[in-house]
Amino acid sequence: MITRLEEIPVTKESYPFASAERYLKLSERGYVEKEYYMYGTANVYETADERGGVRVRTVDAPYTNRIIVRAPQDTAKCSGNVVVEIINPTSFMEIDRMWILGWKKFVRDGDIYVGITSKPNTIAKMVEFDEKRYGRLSWANPTPDVPFSERLQATGGLGDLNHDYETGLFWDMLTDLAWLLRGEEEQNPIREYKREYVYLTGWSQSGSYLFRYLNSFAYRPDAARGARVFDGYLSGGGVHSLGIPVNQYETMAPYHYSLTRVEKAREPFIAVQTESENGRMEAWRIAQPDSDDPEFLFRQYDMTGASHDTSYSYVDYYQNDPDLVRINHLPFYMGKNEEGNDYP
Protein backbone atom coordinates (compact mmCIF):
# COMPACT_ATOMS: atom_id res chain seq x y z
CA MET A 1 0.00 0.00 0.00
CA ILE A 2 1.33 3.44 -0.92
CA THR A 3 0.73 5.66 2.08
CA ARG A 4 2.17 8.91 0.74
CA LEU A 5 3.91 10.55 -2.20
CA GLU A 6 6.10 13.56 -1.52
CA GLU A 7 7.52 15.73 -4.28
CA ILE A 8 11.26 16.30 -3.97
CA PRO A 9 12.11 19.95 -4.68
CA VAL A 10 14.45 20.67 -7.58
CA THR A 11 17.01 23.43 -7.10
CA LYS A 12 20.23 24.46 -8.79
CA GLU A 13 22.13 22.39 -6.23
CA SER A 14 19.73 19.44 -5.90
CA TYR A 15 18.14 17.68 -8.86
CA PRO A 16 17.23 14.13 -9.94
CA PHE A 17 19.89 11.56 -10.68
CA ALA A 18 20.61 11.47 -14.44
CA SER A 19 18.08 14.25 -14.96
CA ALA A 20 16.51 14.37 -18.42
CA GLU A 21 15.89 18.08 -17.90
CA ARG A 22 19.65 18.61 -17.70
CA TYR A 23 20.41 16.31 -20.64
CA LEU A 24 17.57 17.27 -22.98
CA LYS A 25 16.25 20.63 -21.72
CA LEU A 26 12.78 19.14 -21.40
CA SER A 27 11.22 22.43 -20.31
CA GLU A 28 12.13 23.90 -23.70
CA ARG A 29 10.28 20.98 -25.28
CA GLY A 30 7.11 21.61 -23.31
CA TYR A 31 7.75 18.92 -20.69
CA VAL A 32 8.24 18.98 -16.95
CA GLU A 33 10.31 16.55 -14.86
CA LYS A 34 9.36 15.87 -11.23
CA GLU A 35 10.66 13.40 -8.68
CA TYR A 36 8.82 11.93 -5.68
CA TYR A 37 9.49 9.90 -2.58
CA MET A 38 7.09 6.96 -2.49
CA TYR A 39 6.34 5.75 1.05
CA GLY A 40 4.42 2.59 1.78
CA THR A 41 4.36 -1.05 2.79
CA ALA A 42 4.70 -4.17 0.68
CA ASN A 43 4.40 -7.89 1.15
CA VAL A 44 7.36 -10.12 0.41
CA TYR A 45 6.40 -13.30 -1.45
CA GLU A 46 7.90 -16.76 -1.88
CA THR A 47 7.54 -19.48 -4.49
CA ALA A 48 4.50 -21.72 -4.03
CA ASP A 49 4.79 -23.90 -7.16
CA GLU A 50 7.13 -24.36 -10.09
CA ARG A 51 4.93 -22.57 -12.63
CA GLY A 52 4.94 -19.19 -10.95
CA GLY A 53 2.46 -19.41 -8.09
CA VAL A 54 3.47 -17.39 -5.03
CA ARG A 55 2.33 -16.93 -1.45
CA VAL A 56 2.99 -14.22 1.12
CA ARG A 57 6.19 -14.69 3.13
CA THR A 58 6.25 -11.42 5.09
CA VAL A 59 3.35 -8.96 5.47
CA ASP A 60 3.48 -5.17 5.21
CA ALA A 61 7.20 -4.42 5.24
CA PRO A 62 7.83 -0.63 5.18
CA TYR A 63 9.82 1.05 2.43
CA THR A 64 10.77 4.43 0.99
CA ASN A 65 11.27 4.37 -2.77
CA ARG A 66 11.33 7.03 -5.50
CA ILE A 67 9.71 7.65 -8.88
CA ILE A 68 10.51 10.10 -11.68
CA VAL A 69 7.68 11.66 -13.72
CA ARG A 70 8.05 13.39 -17.10
CA ALA A 71 4.86 14.85 -18.53
CA PRO A 72 3.61 17.66 -20.79
CA GLN A 73 3.56 21.03 -19.05
CA ASP A 74 0.18 21.67 -20.67
CA THR A 75 -2.20 18.97 -19.43
CA ALA A 76 -4.37 19.48 -22.52
CA LYS A 77 -1.52 18.19 -24.71
CA CYS A 78 -1.39 14.79 -22.98
CA SER A 79 -2.07 11.80 -25.24
CA GLY A 80 -3.69 9.72 -22.51
CA ASN A 81 -0.85 7.18 -22.65
CA VAL A 82 1.11 6.54 -19.44
CA VAL A 83 4.35 4.58 -19.82
CA VAL A 84 5.71 3.06 -16.60
CA GLU A 85 9.32 1.90 -16.80
CA ILE A 86 11.00 -0.53 -14.45
CA ILE A 87 14.31 1.35 -14.30
CA ASN A 88 17.24 -0.94 -15.07
CA PRO A 89 19.55 -1.65 -12.09
CA THR A 90 22.11 -4.04 -13.58
CA SER A 91 25.05 -1.59 -13.62
CA PHE A 92 24.31 -0.47 -10.04
CA MET A 93 22.98 2.87 -11.29
CA GLU A 94 19.58 4.05 -12.48
CA ILE A 95 19.43 3.60 -16.27
CA ASP A 96 16.00 4.52 -17.61
CA ARG A 97 16.76 2.75 -20.84
CA MET A 98 13.27 2.78 -22.37
CA TRP A 99 13.08 6.52 -21.79
CA ILE A 100 16.42 6.93 -23.56
CA LEU A 101 15.20 4.85 -26.49
CA GLY A 102 11.72 6.35 -26.65
CA TRP A 103 11.79 9.93 -25.38
CA LYS A 104 11.53 11.53 -28.82
CA LYS A 105 8.30 9.67 -29.49
CA PHE A 106 6.95 10.23 -25.97
CA VAL A 107 7.52 13.99 -26.24
CA ARG A 108 6.22 14.17 -29.79
CA ASP A 109 3.03 12.32 -28.89
CA GLY A 110 2.43 13.89 -25.47
CA ASP A 111 2.85 10.68 -23.46
CA ILE A 112 3.47 10.61 -19.72
CA TYR A 113 6.56 8.74 -18.53
CA VAL A 114 6.89 7.34 -15.00
CA GLY A 115 10.10 5.58 -13.96
CA ILE A 116 10.29 3.56 -10.75
CA THR A 117 13.45 2.45 -8.94
CA SER A 118 13.27 -1.33 -9.17
CA LYS A 119 16.11 -2.64 -7.05
CA PRO A 120 17.85 -1.26 -3.96
CA ASN A 121 21.36 -1.97 -5.23
CA THR A 122 21.26 1.40 -7.05
CA ILE A 123 20.56 3.42 -3.90
CA ALA A 124 24.22 3.55 -2.84
CA LYS A 125 25.24 5.44 -5.97
CA MET A 126 22.27 7.79 -5.67
CA VAL A 127 23.27 8.54 -2.08
CA GLU A 128 26.86 9.16 -3.21
CA PHE A 129 25.45 11.48 -5.87
CA ASP A 130 23.31 13.45 -3.36
CA GLU A 131 23.03 12.12 0.18
CA LYS A 132 20.56 14.77 1.31
CA ARG A 133 18.23 13.99 -1.60
CA TYR A 134 18.41 10.21 -1.52
CA GLY A 135 19.58 9.29 1.99
CA ARG A 136 16.09 8.38 3.16
CA LEU A 137 15.52 5.72 0.47
CA SER A 138 15.13 2.33 2.13
CA TRP A 139 14.16 -1.23 1.20
CA ALA A 140 15.07 -2.71 4.58
CA ASN A 141 15.08 -6.49 4.89
CA PRO A 142 12.04 -7.32 7.07
CA THR A 143 13.63 -10.64 8.13
CA PRO A 144 17.16 -9.62 9.18
CA ASP A 145 17.35 -12.58 11.54
CA VAL A 146 17.16 -15.01 8.59
CA PRO A 147 20.63 -15.53 7.05
CA PHE A 148 21.36 -16.24 3.42
CA SER A 149 22.06 -19.86 2.60
CA GLU A 150 25.69 -20.89 2.11
CA ARG A 151 24.92 -21.66 -1.54
CA LEU A 152 23.50 -18.20 -2.09
CA GLN A 153 26.49 -16.56 -0.45
CA ALA A 154 28.77 -18.57 -2.73
CA THR A 155 26.98 -17.78 -6.00
CA GLY A 156 26.10 -14.16 -5.29
CA GLY A 157 23.60 -13.82 -8.13
CA LEU A 158 24.32 -10.67 -10.13
CA GLY A 159 26.69 -9.54 -7.39
CA ASP A 160 24.05 -7.25 -5.91
CA LEU A 161 22.96 -9.31 -2.90
CA ASN A 162 22.88 -7.49 0.41
CA HIS A 163 21.38 -8.86 3.60
CA ASP A 164 20.40 -5.34 4.69
CA TYR A 165 17.76 -4.95 1.97
CA GLU A 166 15.07 -7.04 0.26
CA THR A 167 14.49 -6.90 -3.49
CA GLY A 168 11.17 -8.75 -3.15
CA LEU A 169 9.41 -5.59 -1.95
CA PHE A 170 9.17 -4.47 -5.55
CA TRP A 171 6.16 -6.48 -6.76
CA ASP A 172 3.61 -4.75 -4.53
CA MET A 173 5.28 -1.39 -5.13
CA LEU A 174 4.71 -1.81 -8.86
CA THR A 175 1.08 -2.92 -8.59
CA ASP A 176 0.22 -0.20 -6.09
CA LEU A 177 1.86 2.44 -8.30
CA ALA A 178 -0.24 1.34 -11.29
CA TRP A 179 -3.45 1.68 -9.31
CA LEU A 180 -2.40 5.04 -7.92
CA LEU A 181 -1.72 6.37 -11.44
CA ARG A 182 -5.12 5.13 -12.61
CA GLY A 183 -7.05 6.53 -9.66
CA GLU A 184 -8.35 9.91 -8.55
CA GLU A 185 -6.54 10.16 -5.23
CA GLU A 186 -5.19 13.60 -4.48
CA GLN A 187 -1.66 12.25 -4.15
CA ASN A 188 -1.68 10.86 -7.72
CA PRO A 189 1.08 12.93 -9.42
CA ILE A 190 -0.69 12.80 -12.81
CA ARG A 191 -4.24 13.18 -11.52
CA GLU A 192 -4.87 16.29 -13.65
CA TYR A 193 -3.97 14.52 -16.89
CA LYS A 194 -6.02 12.33 -19.19
CA ARG A 195 -5.11 8.67 -18.48
CA GLU A 196 -6.62 6.24 -20.96
CA TYR A 197 -3.92 3.55 -21.06
CA VAL A 198 -1.21 2.57 -18.60
CA TYR A 199 1.63 0.48 -20.06
CA LEU A 200 4.56 -1.32 -18.42
CA THR A 201 7.99 -1.55 -20.00
CA GLY A 202 11.60 -2.39 -19.20
CA TRP A 203 14.89 -3.25 -20.86
CA SER A 204 17.25 -6.22 -20.28
CA GLN A 205 16.99 -7.37 -16.63
CA SER A 206 13.99 -5.06 -16.26
CA GLY A 207 12.47 -6.60 -19.38
CA SER A 208 12.78 -9.96 -17.64
CA TYR A 209 10.97 -8.49 -14.65
CA LEU A 210 7.92 -8.24 -16.91
CA PHE A 211 7.96 -12.01 -17.42
CA ARG A 212 7.93 -12.67 -13.69
CA TYR A 213 5.33 -9.97 -13.01
CA LEU A 214 2.85 -11.43 -15.51
CA ASN A 215 3.52 -15.04 -14.59
CA SER A 216 3.27 -14.54 -10.82
CA PHE A 217 1.61 -11.28 -9.86
CA ALA A 218 -0.52 -9.43 -12.43
CA TYR A 219 -3.44 -11.85 -12.30
CA ARG A 220 -3.56 -12.50 -8.58
CA PRO A 221 -7.03 -11.40 -7.34
CA ASP A 222 -5.50 -8.97 -4.87
CA ALA A 223 -3.41 -7.41 -7.66
CA ALA A 224 -6.03 -7.11 -10.40
CA ARG A 225 -8.70 -5.80 -8.02
CA GLY A 226 -11.36 -6.80 -10.51
CA ALA A 227 -9.65 -5.20 -13.52
CA ARG A 228 -6.40 -5.19 -15.48
CA VAL A 229 -3.35 -3.71 -13.76
CA PHE A 230 -1.68 -2.60 -17.01
CA ASP A 231 -3.18 -2.24 -20.48
CA GLY A 232 -0.16 -3.58 -22.32
CA TYR A 233 3.47 -4.62 -21.96
CA LEU A 234 6.69 -4.01 -23.90
CA SER A 235 9.77 -6.02 -22.94
CA GLY A 236 12.94 -4.80 -24.62
CA GLY A 237 15.96 -7.09 -24.76
CA GLY A 238 14.63 -9.39 -22.03
CA VAL A 239 17.43 -11.74 -20.96
CA HIS A 240 15.81 -15.17 -20.86
CA SER A 241 18.68 -16.74 -18.94
CA LEU A 242 17.61 -14.64 -15.95
CA GLY A 243 14.94 -16.26 -13.82
CA ILE A 244 13.95 -13.21 -11.80
CA PRO A 245 13.58 -14.28 -8.16
CA VAL A 246 10.46 -13.56 -6.11
CA ASN A 247 12.66 -12.46 -3.22
CA GLN A 248 16.41 -12.19 -2.87
CA TYR A 249 16.65 -15.34 -0.74
CA GLU A 250 15.59 -17.23 -3.88
CA THR A 251 18.28 -15.69 -6.09
CA MET A 252 19.82 -18.41 -8.29
CA ALA A 253 16.97 -20.78 -7.45
CA PRO A 254 16.39 -23.48 -10.11
CA TYR A 255 13.17 -22.00 -11.52
CA HIS A 256 11.14 -23.79 -14.17
CA TYR A 257 12.20 -22.68 -17.68
CA SER A 258 8.72 -21.24 -18.31
CA LEU A 259 9.47 -18.47 -15.80
CA THR A 260 12.25 -17.09 -18.03
CA ARG A 261 9.62 -16.00 -20.56
CA VAL A 262 6.06 -14.74 -20.40
CA GLU A 263 3.56 -17.61 -20.31
CA LYS A 264 0.26 -15.73 -20.04
CA ALA A 265 -0.81 -12.28 -21.15
CA ARG A 266 -4.44 -11.19 -21.29
CA GLU A 267 -3.30 -7.76 -22.45
CA PRO A 268 -1.06 -7.24 -25.51
CA PHE A 269 2.54 -8.19 -24.79
CA ILE A 270 5.31 -7.22 -27.22
CA ALA A 271 8.82 -8.67 -26.87
CA VAL A 272 11.62 -6.98 -28.81
CA GLN A 273 14.81 -9.02 -29.16
CA THR A 274 18.12 -7.92 -30.64
CA GLU A 275 20.82 -10.16 -32.08
CA SER A 276 22.55 -10.07 -28.69
CA GLU A 277 19.75 -11.89 -26.88
CA ASN A 278 19.06 -14.31 -29.71
CA GLY A 279 22.72 -15.08 -30.31
CA ARG A 280 24.99 -14.60 -27.34
CA MET A 281 22.22 -15.08 -24.75
CA GLU A 282 20.47 -17.90 -26.68
CA ALA A 283 16.94 -16.56 -26.32
CA TRP A 284 16.02 -18.55 -29.42
CA ARG A 285 15.98 -21.70 -27.28
CA ILE A 286 12.71 -20.65 -25.63
CA ALA A 287 11.16 -18.66 -28.47
CA GLN A 288 7.37 -18.55 -28.65
CA PRO A 289 5.11 -18.11 -31.67
CA ASP A 290 2.91 -15.05 -32.06
CA SER A 291 -0.50 -15.62 -30.54
CA ASP A 292 -4.00 -14.11 -30.55
CA ASP A 293 -5.28 -16.45 -27.85
CA PRO A 294 -7.26 -14.38 -25.30
CA GLU A 295 -5.03 -15.78 -22.57
CA PHE A 296 -1.83 -15.08 -24.52
CA LEU A 297 -1.84 -11.94 -26.67
CA PHE A 298 1.77 -12.04 -27.80
CA ARG A 299 4.09 -10.70 -30.49
CA GLN A 300 7.87 -10.99 -30.78
CA TYR A 301 9.99 -8.76 -33.01
CA ASP A 302 13.56 -9.85 -33.76
CA MET A 303 15.68 -6.83 -34.72
CA THR A 304 18.41 -7.89 -37.14
CA GLY A 305 21.48 -5.70 -36.78
CA ALA A 306 20.53 -4.27 -33.38
CA SER A 307 22.50 -5.02 -30.21
CA HIS A 308 21.72 -5.22 -26.50
CA ASP A 309 23.71 -2.09 -25.71
CA THR A 310 24.35 0.69 -28.19
CA SER A 311 26.55 3.74 -28.46
CA TYR A 312 23.53 6.04 -28.31
CA SER A 313 21.58 4.50 -25.48
CA TYR A 314 24.44 3.58 -23.18
CA VAL A 315 27.12 6.20 -23.84
CA ASP A 316 26.13 9.23 -25.90
CA TYR A 317 22.95 10.04 -23.95
CA TYR A 318 24.89 10.78 -20.76
CA GLN A 319 27.11 13.42 -22.45
CA ASN A 320 30.02 12.85 -20.09
CA ASP A 321 27.85 13.98 -17.19
CA PRO A 322 30.27 15.49 -14.62
CA ASP A 323 28.08 14.21 -11.77
CA LEU A 324 28.43 10.63 -12.97
CA VAL A 325 32.16 11.16 -13.47
CA ARG A 326 32.35 12.51 -9.91
CA ILE A 327 30.85 9.31 -8.48
CA ASN A 328 32.92 7.18 -10.89
CA HIS A 329 29.89 5.69 -12.61
CA LEU A 330 29.72 7.15 -16.10
CA PRO A 331 28.41 4.36 -18.38
CA PHE A 332 30.88 3.07 -20.94
CA TYR A 333 30.43 0.58 -23.74
CA MET A 334 31.66 -2.96 -23.07
CA GLY A 335 30.63 -4.73 -26.27
CA LYS A 336 32.53 -7.09 -28.54
CA ASN A 337 33.81 -4.23 -30.69
CA GLU A 338 35.70 -1.13 -29.60
CA GLU A 339 32.99 1.23 -30.84
CA GLY A 340 29.40 0.88 -29.75
CA ASN A 341 26.75 -0.17 -32.25
CA ASP A 342 24.95 2.90 -33.61
CA TYR A 343 22.23 0.97 -35.43
CA PRO A 344 18.80 2.49 -34.65
Rank of each mutant, 00 (worst) to 15 (best):
K77M: 08
D130F: 12
E33G: 06
N328Q: 13
T41A: 04
E150W: 08
G237H: 04
H163V: 15
E338A: 15
L101V: 07
Q248N: 14
R51N: 14
R261Y: 11
V315I: 10
K264M: 08
Y165F: 15
E128H: 13
P294C: 03
L210T: 06
N341T: 08
G340W: 02
Y45P: 01
Q187T: 04
D316W: 05
K194I: 00
E339Q: 15
L169Q: 13
F170T: 03
I244V: 15
F170E: 03
F230S: 00
Y209K: 12
E339W: 14
M1N: 09
W171C: 00
I270M: 07
M281D: 05
L297W: 07
R66H: 07
G110N: 05
G305F: 03
L174R: 03
E33S: 07
E295P: 09
Y113V: 04
S216Y: 09
M303V: 14
Q248T: 11
L210C: 06
R326N: 07
I270T: 12
R55H: 03
F129Q: 12
Q288N: 12
P62N: 09
Y193D: 00
D292R: 12
W139H: 14
V107L: 12
P142S: 11
D109T: 05
P89G: 03
A20Y: 09
L242H: 06
R195D: 01
E184W: 01
E13D: 14
S258I: 12
E50W: 10
N88S: 05
E166H: 10
V56I: 10
F211N: 14
Q205M: 13
E275I: 04
V127M: 13
I116M: 15
T143K: 11
P294R: 07
T251Q: 12
G279P: 00
V239L: 08
Y23M: 08
I2N: 03
A61H: 09
P322L: 07
T117F: 08
Y36N: 04
I244T: 12
Y343R: 07
Y165M: 11
M126L: 15
S118E: 06
S149L: 06
M281R: 05
E94M: 13
T251A: 13
A253C: 06
W99L: 03
E13K: 15
I190F: 03
L259N: 10
M1Y: 06
I67P: 02
A61K: 08
Y113T: 05
R220Y: 02
G236C: 12
F269S: 03
V69L: 02
E267L: 00
R261P: 02
P16W: 09
N162W: 13
G243I: 05
D60E: 10
G207F: 04
G135I: 08
I95V: 14
L259S: 08
D222C: 01
W203C: 08
G202R: 02
P9T: 04
P144F: 11
G279L: 05
V315R: 07
